[in-house]
Design a protein around this nucleic acid. Structure first.
Length: 901
RNA sequence: GGGCGGUUAGCUCAGCUGGUUAGAGCAUCUGACUUACAUUCAGAAGGUCGAGGGUUCAAUUCCUUCACCGCCCACCA
């Protein structure tokens, strides 16, 4: 058995990545003899490369799936990538723009070719990057959301919903991104609070008496007001003031609305206004939507550019005037502003209103403006014909599943967020006016009849049946929202709608791990799709993990330049280091700076070196089978007990999704117990084969326990052991062996550790050179401890660096010593000349005082009848015991104090 | 506007169903004979658990008010 003196993570990674791949280690099939366990990967977008969020997300999944596999499950981790519609189209458009071209220039076919080339390159890259992380996916099953089979699943889902009446086409106000020139769903419009303005605009009232004839299209607001002085006898305002944040939309106004109960305006309902700039006559209408206490209580109504106004328009039968081109330039309906960009038009409109005297005032106003989640352009509420999914019927079973714990979300507080969204769910706009994606499976004939079909061929057949003759059909130009394909991921990847062995065996999947950002986009919709298409939940547990942020708490992003590249970390520190450090830091959100990766690097290095020590001293043919506790020394019994205790806790933590805690336990055990104590203690005893056996046994099983977290270094060391498994990734999780656990060992070992600790403490306290050996006298408190200390006196001597050690209950306290107390066991270190006795006295007194304080408060409590009456018996007993112990300790300290000269 | 989280050592966080003297890592300070490891080892110092009130024999833990920070959702123009 031999390990190189310096650990080389990169070499190890390369070796095992190749080994796993060459031996198909993670390829799994349905196997009726084993229980299935399935995780589907949140498919990364093919837009880019691995970032820290991916690294965290996939490490979490890998830990769980490796753990399950080691526990005998047929644990499948399904990998793949997402075509990410708009996002990918955008990056390729940008690439094209560098050549000075647009997608329209090269046409749909050519553009799609470019996209597929991009997908090939970046899809492969990200998969290989996931591999580098150590992800134990079944790579032979890698899926892409636009694979042929997958596209069939998408069509099937569309058709099924359409046939049930849950997909419909409608002309509505949707979120429109003028840059991407496509519709977005509500979720794809990110609302950002901005400091904007609220503009108050005067809309002149057309006088029923005097002004009718004088109004002409060119007349200004100013003159209108002048002439309306005549109308003052009517004792009415000459204009009505409306407030708006988007003044340019007034070009499309077709009414002004007030609340029917608002006394200020009740007289005016039904009157006609002159829309400034456009000089269009519009009516004042009454609608409950308008609240009297906001702004002026009067609202301009623009049915083609605002969702509420749209609804009001429908209620009042108002014309819907669309004043914008798809790129948000004003169109010919906008009169003289035609051709101007919306923001340019806003400036112009305001300037013109000002000139006319129709701009009443401008106030600062905070409001949330929707931005495209892919390009950050301000979205425009825009009237257009789109496809929608009715969500309420789909949401019902999905809501209930979480409600009745059929699906559990962790941490549980996310359930509330989920419920809140589900309860307020709106219909989902699924059509996108882009080219990259699943073409909507809908064809039209020249009369506008709709044929929904799996293929053109099928649509043609439908049309022929309808018309009795062959007719020309045109397919809908639009593609589906990318999430309309990813919501099928848990079963489409397993072959749905085709009924097959894998689907039956691996579905429902078990655990889904993802970041909170896509709870609505993806998780909630997958749950809906699972019940809708499979009649069953897609997974049982959802783990929502935090976002990776930089040390200042900012999201990592390319534009901020604060991103740490996981691949750079893998090259510099190793994949194990990356994984270990990320997980141990993962609480809620996780704050990462480059130095944090030293934690994992150092730990891997520690494991390597501890193994080297063992390997240098233990026989290569050692068989750890048949290890038993008979006459085994205390440190060995102790490390075994500690191992099994840790193993149980670690297993529990993994099951509970408490991974950082699991890593802390592992580190505490391996570094804090095995390396710092056990290996240090046995260094002088390596000739003992039973100790060798124990050392190797614990190492071997620790490697298994650590493997899900740090697969590479553990594989490498494990492969050098005398084991029969093909590799550690195929080994079994250790099982608790009661026969190897001595429950008393922990307590006994603790007193040895404490004694050594006390000696070391005194050494530093009194500044004693480490090469000065000491004499130590111990007066054990009882025979049990005496025996333990005697058995381990060599250890105490060696680690305490002692010349002489006397353990004797009947010796007199040693004068002029530094003293320590372990329980009631007294430790004396004669230090005449080295120790300032007064200082030592002060030290003793402080200790006594502190203990006395504790005694006092305990006494008060124990003599309080309310406490003794109400507190549970075991608590009272514990307190009594503690009082007894404290008193003994005080007595011991006092006797020591008395002996200080 | 609604909802959700957070506030514990200089920093980053643990602390699960209330019960001894509130833990860890990093940073700091002191020291290091020893070829497994300086990516190391030993030791120390550091906290009125955000503020007030309440429930309880007992509160970092449960309830409540407040302050500050963060996130999500939302059609008040």
């Amino acid at each position: 058995m031999e390990l190189s003196s310096k650990y080389n993570p990169q070499e190890t990674q390369d070796k095992w990545l190749k080994f796993w791949k060459d031996n198909n280690i993670f390829h799994l099939k349905a196997d009726g003899h084993k229980r299935p366990f399935t995780i589907v990967i949140p498919p990364p977008n093919v837009t880019g490369i691995l970032h820290m969020g991916h690294a965290l997300n996939n490490t979490l999944q890998d830990i769980l799936v490796r753990y399950k596999r080691m526990n005998g499950f047929q644990a499948l981790w399904m990998p793949g990538t997402d075509h990410a519609g708009i996002a990918t189209q955008n990056v390729v458009e940008k690439q094209l723009a560098k050549e000075g071209k647009t997608r329209q220039d090269i046409g749909r076919g050519e553009f799609l070719k470019r996209l597929w080339a991009w997908k090939k390159e970046y899809g492969d890259t990200i998969i290989s990057q996931l591999e580098k992380l150590g992800s134990s996916c079944d790579w032979s099953r890698t899926r892409f959301t636009m694979d042929d089979d997958y596209s069939n699943s998408v069509n099937e889902a569309f058709i099924s919903l359409y046939n049930k009446g849950l997909i419909y086409q409608g002309t509505r106000i949707i979120n429109w991104c003028p840059r991407c020139q496509t519709a977005l769903s509500d979720e794809e419009a990110e609302h950002k609070e901005k400091n904007g303005k609220l503009y108050y605009i005067k809309y002149p009232i057309k006088s029923s008496v005097n002004l009718e004839s004088s109004v002409n299209p060119s007349e200004s607001c100013q003159s209108l007001l002048k002439s309306s002085v005549i109308a003052s006898e009517a004792k009415q305002s000459f204009y009505i003031v409306v407030a708006t944040t988007r003044p340019e939309t007034m070009l499309g106004d077709t009414a002004v609305a007030v609340n029917p109960a608002d006394p200020r305006y009740s007289q005016l309902i039904g009157r006609t206004l002159i829309l400034p700039l456009m000089n269009r006559e519009i009516k004042i209408i009454a609608d409950d939507f308008v609240s009297a206490d906001f702004g002026t209580g009067a609202v301009k109504v623009t049915p083609a550019h605002d969702p509420n106004d749209f609804l009001m328009g429908q209620r009042h039968n108002l014309p819907k005037i669309n004043v914008m081109h798809p790129d948000a330039r004003i169109n010919e309906q906008g009169g003289k502003y035609s051709g101007l960009d919306r923001f340019e038009a806003r400036k112009q409109v305001l300037a013109d209103l000002e000139t006319l005297g129709c701009l009443d005032k401008i106030e600062d106003h905070k409001n949330a403006i929707g931005h495209c989640y892919r390009c950050d352009t301000v979205v425009e509420p825009y009237l257009s014909k789109q496809w929608f999914v009715s969500m309420k019927p789909l949401a019902k079973p999905a809501f209930e599943a979480v409600q009745n714990n059929n699906i559990r979300i962790h941490p549980a507080h996310w359930t509330k967020v989920y419920n809140n969204w589900m309860e307020n769910i709106q219909d989902w706009c699924i059509s996108r006016q882009i080219w990259w994606g699943h073409r909507i499976p809908v064809w039209y004939d020249n009369k506008g009849n709709v044929f929904v079909a799996r293929s053109r061929y099928e649509a043609m057949a439908q049309a022929e049946a309808k018309h009795g003759m062959t007719v020309d059909l045109i397919q809908d130009e639009d593609v589906l929202d990318t999430w309309f394909s990813s919501w099928l991921w848990p079963f489409a990847t397993l072959g749905w709608p085709k009924d097959n062995e894998d689907l039956k065996y691996f579905y429902p999947t078990d655990t889904l791990m993802t970041a909170s950002e896509i709870l609505f986009f993806w998780v909630a919709r997958m749950i809906m799709a699972g019940y809708e298409f499979m009649g069953n939940k897609p997974f049982s547990d959802v783990l929502i993990h935090g976002t990776v942020r930089d040390a200042k708490g900012r999201k990592m992003s390319k534009s901020l330049g604060n991103a740490i590249d996981p691949l750079e970390i893998i090259d510099e520190y190793g994949a194990d280091a990356l994984r270990f450090s990320l997980i141990i830091n993962s609480g809620q959100d996780i704050f990462i700076s480059k130095e944090k990766f030293e934690i994992g690097r150092n730990f891997a290095n520690k494991i390597w070196n501890a193994s080297r020590l063992v390997f240098m001293n233990c026989s290569p043919t050692l068989d750890t089978q048949g290890l038993n506790l008979d006459h085994l020394d205390l440190p060995s019994r102790w490390i075994l007990a500690r191992f099994y205790d840790t193993l149980e806790k670690v297993s529990h933590c993994i099951e509970q999704f408490r991974y950082s805690e699991a890593e802390i336990l592992i580190q505490d055990f391996f570094w804090g117990n095995y390396c710092d104590w056990y290996l240090e203690l046995i260094k002088a005893q390596f000739t003992d084969t039973r100790i060798q056996k124990t050392a190797v046994f614990v190492l071997e099983n620790s490697l298994k326990m650590m493997h899900p977290f740090i697969p590479f270094v553990t594989e490498e060391i494990y492969s050098k052991l005398n084991v029969s498994d093909i590799c550690l990734s195929r080994a079994a999780w250790p099982i608790r062996q009661g026969l190897l656990i001595d429950t008393k060992a922990d307590l006994q070992m603790q007193s040895v550790i404490d004694i050594i600790g006390a000696i070391r403490n005194i050494r530093t306290q009194w500044n004693i050179k480490s090469h000065d050996t000491l004499d130590v006298y111990i007066i054990p408190s009882e025979d049990g401890i005496k025996a333990v200390l005697e058995d381990n006196s060599l250890h105490i001597q060696r680690l305490g660096r002692l010349k002489d050690l006397v353990i004797n209950a009947s010796i007199a306290p040693v004068k002029n010593s530094a003293t320590a107390l372990i329980g009631s066991t007294k430790v004396f270190i004669p230090l005449t000349g080295l120790v300032d006795l007064n200082a030592e006295k002060i030290r003793m007194n402080t200790a006594i005082d502190q203990k006395k304080k504790n005694v006092d408060s305990l006494n008060i409590r124990l003599h309080d009848p309310v406490f003794t009456l109400k507190a549970p018996e075991d608590i009272i007993n514990k307190e009594r015991e503690r009082l007894g112990t404290l008193n003994k300790e005080i007595a011991a300290l006092e006797s020591v104090l008395a002996n200080l000269a």
